[in-house]
Design a protein around this nucleic acid. Structure first.
Lengths: 215, 215
DNA sequence: GAATTAATTGAACGTTCGTTTTATTATGTC
DNA sequence: GACATAATAAAACGAACGTTCAATTAATTC
């Protein structure tokens, strides 16, 4: 009835995070109890409080690290090129790859915002806005350069992000489509949606998706 | 401490539904307590059980009627024409109008599915699938007729629905854009995304959104 | 106006919740 | 091997949860 043999704080904390993401994604934050989470980790509920002072702290930590990871991933994937088409393609590819890889965490970050305190909600939304702004900038640059035909930059950015993030709702790894096929299709749909004028000669304006993507 | 003057079952039930949609949309189903809901209606918690036997029954009723309303609305808006472009335009317009008008109910129907029992979840998903199938059929017909350039009908249908439904996340009535402007933009983006060949001479293939929509 | 039905209250039920406290044991250090 | 520290268990806290029940009053019916 105390410390167990082989117990290790770092490993336990990592196990708690992993189990929490999976449980919250499946049951929802409010519906998941600390006792359930503890049972999943193989520990008593009280032990969780060694790592996270409250349930909401746990949620916030998961969300903050998810958003930081997204911004960091885009920072690494962002191309040096100034060409809007290249930048948009990189954004789409990074977004889809990241979100498919972290389906559960994305679910949590998108669905459980209302369980955060006002202050913490603001923090998360700030990161999200920064990420979305990157896309708006690309779209605006492309529109000004005349390579995109866009009605409303803000509206188009939101539509694209909703469309891309929606992948996690229906995509299941190992089913009909591979990640590469899904990414190729979404890239093609994106380019068509923004009315991209193909500048690399790799695709025709009204060509099939495969053409527009196979670069 | 009993029946109150002027009390009326029908009015109370309607008030409960309305308050429930709004509260669940704002707080989430699990986070909303029956006492909170009762207070919003101006009644004691026990009174709710005269209208809905359990909390989950209440949720299910709201969702089922929302989905029935969506299918009914599409049934009324579905054009007689066989032209895929006309049908797709009607689908987009109906979808956006319906979802903007019922933002809160849509939020509930999309976010709280995991709180339903397996059997009831199946019922709701059946209706949702039937609604989505209508779009897939339009896309397939258009692709076969050669007026749409589509890679994967199922994937495109999901992408379009996610994109359109996403409107409720950011759209707020009375702000920058009107419902008509939003609908016009989404219609334009949709037609471009599916690579629609304009058959009415109302827009150029690579034209601005306004051109493609102003019919 | 008496009897019946509809609508609601107030109190209580047992359960579960997030969290705290205290005790206990394993591990690392000298 | 003594001692400090890290990691957990076990038990308990008050509060809140969904729900039930009996009592009570308003509206309706005859």
């Amino acid at each position: 009835m105390a410390r167990t043999t082989g117990s290790d704080g770092e490993k336990t904390e990592a196990a708690v995070r992993e189990a929490a993401v999976s449980l919250i994604a499946r049951l929802g934050y409010e519906a998941m109890s600390m006792r359930q989470l503890a049972a999943e980790v193989g520990v008593q509920a009280a032990a969780l409080y060694r790592y996270f002072p409250t349930k909401e702290d746990l949620l916030f930590t998961l969300m903050r690290e998810h958003m930081e990871g997204l911004l960091k991933a885009w920072g690494a994937a962002r191309p040096a090129s100034a060409d809007p088409v290249t930048r948009l393609a990189a954004y789409v590819e990074n977004h889809i790859a990241f979100h498919i890889e972290r389906r559960h965490a994305t679910h949590v970050s998108n669905m459980e915002l209302r369980s955060l305190s006002h202050e913490r909600l603001t923090q998360i939304l700030k990161m999200r806005t920064a990420y979305e702004k990157e896309l708006r900038t690309i779209l605006r640059d492309g529109a000004e350069a005349g390579v995109f035909q866009i009605d409303d930059t803000g509206l188009t950015a939101m539509a694209l992000i909703q469309m891309m993030t929606g992948v996690i709702v229906w995509f299941r790894p190992g089913e009909r489509l591979s990640i590469a096929e899904v990414t190729a299709s979404y890239l093609s749909m994106t380019m068509r949606l923004v009315g991209a004028t193909i500048s690399h000669g790799t695709a025709r304006p009204s060509g099939r998706a495969r053409d527009a993507v196979a670069l």
